[in-house]
């Protein structure tokens, strides 16, 4: 029986996170939660990048997921976490499946700009919706998880964190198997030469459509999980700087493995958080310098460090 290393590391990391975080201070648990939420969005971005597409508008689905989860309470009085996440998945899947009909025809900068345009449309709409608090947004509350009352209990934070870990683990494992599957391997083939892929009898349009929807659903999941962990959502989530942050983390992580997005997001979030603390006036510069260093010395992203290390040992 072949042992898949990525799955082992993923499972070990999940077990370690679930087992050790209760002993870590609260803020560290929150840092991991936020990193995982970013990580799952970037996991979808990674799939697109492997297909040769960079989306500067994934904030659209991140925000849509968050609002699909968050507006359930003001609209229908629903505060069940599972329903909120299900709603985020459904809404992002439907919207992305429709938008993909148009977007799958475009490549490179045209794809990037068009996706950016769609995310800014959502931003504009939400800013004009004063019943949802415009740019101030509104607070999101979770009362139950699978019917179990968790609001204001001692384990509320941990349960939300654990659910985030489990969802991220599931997505990463599924993505890992998908990338090894027949269609999953088409991603890089499309990036390298679309024409040959078509000649081989595979549909480029369908594959891109599927990958776009998959990445959108992952972004929606990330947004919904972020909404319940942070407890507040605003249209800033659809703003282009948010989408830019996802591109930033994707470049920082590299696309070598499904582990990379989570590692990259954790490092990004840690750098940002400590930069806030130690250089409140220049924290943006700390992030910028990190970005420059990665582009200059690790063009394959942080993941290439691991690859290089394992190659050297082998």
């Amino acid at each position: 029986m072949r042992i898949d290393r990525t799955i082992i590391v993923l499972t070990a990391a999940m077990a370690a996170l679930l087992a050790f975080t209760p002993f870590l201070p609260n803020w560290a648990m929150f840092l991991f939660t936020v990193s995982l939420c970013y990580g799952v969005v970037v996991l979808g971005m990674m799939l697109l990048v492997r297909t040769g597409l960079v989306s500067f508008g994934h904030g659209l689905y991140y925000c849509l997921g968050a609002y699909a989860a968050g507006t359930l309470e003001p609209l229908f009085g629903i505060t069940e976490l599972a329903v909120m996440i299900g709603s985020a998945v459904a809404v992002t899947a439907i919207v992305s499946a429709i938008l993909a009909l148009l977007l799958r025809k475009y490549r490179d900068i045209f794809f990037a700009m068009l996706s950016l345009a769609f995310s800014m449309i959502l931003y504009g709409l939400l800013v004009k919706t004063s019943s949802l608090g415009s740019t101030d947004g509104f607070n999101v509350t979770v009362k139950t998880l699978f019917g179990l009352h968790i609001a204001d209990t001692a384990y509320e934070r941990y349960l939300i964190f654990a659910l985030t870990v489990l969802i991220c683990w599931t997505c990463a494992v599924l993505m890992h198997f998908y990338l090894k599957s027949h269609r999953g391997r088409l991603a890089e083939a499309i990036r390298d030469n679309e024409l040959r892929v078509e000649y081989m009898g595979a549909s480029v349009a369908n594959t891109i459509h599927l990958h776009y929807v998959m990445s959108a659903v992952l972004a929606g999941l990330g947004g919904a999980l972020m909404a319940v962990s942070v407890g507040h959502i605003d249209p800033e989530m659809a703003y282009w700087t948010t989408s830019g942050e996802f591109v930033f983390i994707t470049i920082l992580s590299g696309t070598g493995s499904v582990l990379a997005p989570f590692l990259g997001a954790t490092i990004f979030e840690s750098i940002r958080s400590f930069a806030y603390e130690y250089s409140p006036n220049t924290w943006q510069m700390a992030l910028g310098i990190t970005m420059l260093m990665v582009i200059m010395f690790l063009p394959g992203g942080l993941w290439s460090l691991f690859k290089r290390a394992s190659r050297r040992v082998a």
Binding site: P25, N26, W27, F30, L31, V34, G133, T135, D136, G137, F138, N139, M226, V230, G231, H232, I233, D234, E236, M237, E269, R272, S273, Y276, E277
Partner: peptide
Amino acid sequence: ATKQVAEFRNLVERQKVDFVIGYISSGDCL
């Protein structure tokens, strides 16, 4: 607001401040 919530937690738990005074943006205040 997302980053401010994270930073508020850091301020309280990592920096161990006794009180917090802050926030100009209404979004952050919510």
